[in-house]
Amino acid sequence: MLNRLKVLRAERNWSQGDLADRLGVSRQSINAIETGKYDPSLPLAFKIARLFGQPIEAIFHDGAADAPGA
């Protein structure tokens, strides 16, 4: 799963720790999500979407739309 978390965070000048505090998770968890080492659960994905004021699909995508023939 790919995501725009790092970009959205940078736009707001938030550190990983700032975002972690807002979401109630550890900074390592934010790092794991940003680097694609962990796909968040739906509840956490909704929480992230609400925090950034964007729909989930604007933040997370599986790359299928970019694939040839999609």
């Binding site: 998770v25 550890s26 390592q28 968890s29 999500i33 962990y38």
Partner: peptide, 11 residues
């Protein structure tokens, strides 16, 4: 510890 941990740690 389990209750305090976030979802990544639990996973």
């Amino acid at each position: 510890f389990w209750q305090s941990a976030d979802e990544v740690m639990r996973r």
